Amino acid sequence: MSRKEVRERLLAGAVSCLQEKGYARTTARDLVAASGTNLASIGYHFGGKDALLNEAIIACFEAWTVRTEQAVFADTLGTPRELLERAMAALVDVFGEMRPTLMGCVEGYPAALREEALRERLAGAYGQAREAGVGILRRAAAESGIELPVAPEVLISVVIAISDGLMIQWLLDPESTPDSRQVVDALAALSAVL
C-alpha cells in the first residue's frame, strides 16, 4: 500500500469513527481497526490520533461545502429565492442523512475551544466555506443579472450561521426544526417587515 493510500484509509477510517463513536470516544485502536492500518501510521501521517480526528472533522466540513455548491448549480439558476431555496435545502434538508457526520462535527467544537490547532483548522474550514459561498453568490448574481444588496461575505456568514444554528437545533429536536422552505419563508417575512 502506498503512503497516499495509507493516509486516505486513515482519514476515511477517522470519518467512520467520528460517525460511529464520536470524537471523544474514538481511540487510536479504533482508528487502526477502521482503516486497516497500524498504530505507527497514525503518528507518521498525522502526528497523532487527535490530529487525525481533526483532519476528519475538516474533511466533513469541506465535503458539505462541495455538496452545497453542486446542489446550487445542478439546475438552471432561476430567481434569487429559488437559488436560496436550493442552497438552504442543501444545507438544512440533509440533516437526516448526515446525522452521524453532523454529530462528529459538533463534537469537534468543544475540543477546538481548548486546542489551538483544531480551532485554527476549523476557522480555516469556515473561511473556505465562506469563500466558496461568496463564489457561488457572485456567480449566481452575475448569471442572474442581479445586484447584491449587501456584501456577499456578510450574506454568506449569515447563511452559515443559520445553517449551523439549525443543525444544532435539529440534533437536539428534529421535529421542531424548520425545513429549508420554512427558513426561506421566514427570511422573506423578516425582509418584508424590516
Rank of each mutant, 00 (worst) to 15 (best):
L52W: 07
D30W: 04
A111C: 09
C17P: 01
P100C: 12
H45Q: 05
E143N: 04
L18M: 01
A51H: 06
S157Y: 06
L194C: 02
M103D: 10
R67A: 13
E131A: 15
I58P: 06
Q182A: 15
L39N: 08
T37I: 04
K49Y: 02
V154R: 10
L190I: 04
D173E: 14
A188D: 12
Y23V: 05
Q169D: 13
A33F: 03
A112P: 11
A63N: 13
G108K: 11
A40C: 00
R3K: 04
E115I: 12
Y44N: 00
A186W: 11
R139H: 05
T68L: 13
V15M: 01
L137G: 03
V106S: 09
P152Y: 07
L102S: 14
A33V: 01
V184L: 03
L187A: 15
L18W: 03
C105T: 11
V94N: 12
L11I: 02
G43Y: 15
V184R: 08
I146T: 13
E97H: 12
M103H: 14
T177P: 02
A12T: 11
V32N: 07
G133Y: 05
V150M: 08
P100Y: 11
Q19E: 15
E85H: 14
T101G: 09
D75L: 14
V94T: 15
G165Q: 02
S16M: 04
R130M: 03
A141F: 01
V193P: 00
G135D: 05
I136N: 05
G133H: 02
E175M: 06
C105V: 14
S180T: 02
V94L: 10
C60W: 03
E69P: 03
T65S: 15
L187F: 07
D185S: 06
R25N: 08
A189D: 09
L53W: 03
D50E: 13
A34G: 06
S176T: 13
S144Y: 00
P152D: 00
A151M: 07
A59K: 10
A90D: 11
V154N: 02
A189L: 10
I160L: 14
A59L: 07
G145K: 02
A34P: 05
S16V: 01
R181P: 01
L83P: 03
L52V: 02
E55S: 14
T37A: 13
L31P: 07
I146S: 04
D93F: 13
V158F: 04
A14M: 07
I168Y: 07
G124D: 06
A33Q: 10
K4T: 09
A151K: 10
A87W: 13
A117S: 09
R86I: 10
L10V: 01
A63M: 11
E120I: 09
D75Y: 12
V183E: 02
P80R: 15
F95T: 10
R121D: 11
G13E: 00
A87R: 15
I156N: 00
E175I: 03
A40E: 11
T26S: 13
C105Q: 14
T76N: 11
A151T: 05
I156S: 00
A188L: 14
A189H: 03
P178T: 01
A117C: 04
T27R: 08
A51F: 04
P100S: 09
A90G: 10
A112Y: 11
Q182F: 05
